[in-house]
Amino acid sequence: MKALVKGAGVAGLTAAYELATRGAIVTVADPCRDMTRTASWFAGGMLAPDCERESAEQIVQDLGLDAADWWETVLPGHVTRAGTLVVAAGRDTSELARFASRTNGFQTLGDEEIGTLEPDLGGRFRLALHFVREAHLDPRAALTALRDRLERKGVSFVETEPGWTKRFDVTIDCTGMARAKADMQLRGVRGEMLILHTPDVSLSRPIRLLHPRFPVYVVPRADHRFMVGATMIESDAAGAITARSMMELLNAAYTVHSAFAEAEIVESGVGIRPAFPDNLPRVTRNGDVIQINGLYRHGFLLAPAMARQAANLAFSQNTTTEHNHEACH
């Protein structure tokens, strides 16, 4: 089988991997050579199915449970399995109770246990929830490594879509927000993020800071860099980060650890997440075109499950046209 994958974000690359692994000859087409214009580039990289259950439907937790295993198998060494630590400022501790009542898979920690687990946060928070089975990865390192891995497997990457698409048995459309003009259901949810650098803070796992209006996470990356994100704004405007958002993100980082006040702001970024009205992803098939879209804020968490579903559809012997097969319904 010859397959064309359109889009080299996390959805496209995971789909290409699933197809190539099952024996397809895969070409990936993306006009952006360096991946920095995909929403995936600005992701947090948290593989957090349990925490996400706080605001997402059960299906997100179910589909996301295997994500860490998938990434670990495909890219050994990229996944850190240290869980997630959920904290709140002293006056917002009732938010922890609310979060706990909506989720499962956590242990409640007191201040001493917090200090044992995450020494730099010792004495800063009285109460935390440790979601033990969660994991995280560096999205940029993972995307780059996955692309290398695919090239070694013989997948070819092109910048312009081949005009002779008839040569392909199946096309997997993973173009995310580029589909929004044609698909009225698809909308953009703007996410703004920062990368901070400070040698004064060491963290081993993502920290989620609960706040009634503005929950934020800090995800450690290599070399004392920290991704701080992300806003959730109902807009597809791609302009630079706003002052208000930057202040909120920096305030949150400062609340997690006061040493962030002295951190360098290495980068600010904006990604537009593609989302359907229910904020759930969809794998749909129309003839020999399969779409994966609407990964919303769950790209790295749900892309493996979506890729498997798309590959199943591509390889299914059923040749009749199947319209709007919805993965989550």
């Binding site: 929004a180 009225m184 698809l186 909308r187 953009g188 949810v189 703007r190 704004i233 109902e234 807009s235 597809d236 405007a237 302009g239 706003t242 009205p277």
Partner: peptide
């Protein structure tokens, strides 16, 4: 709340 730089998500409004 839903505006970013004065521009808004048209699709959210239409919803």
């Amino acid at each position: 709340r839903e505006a970013a730089g004065g521009r808004t998500g048209e699709k959210f409004w239409s919803l």
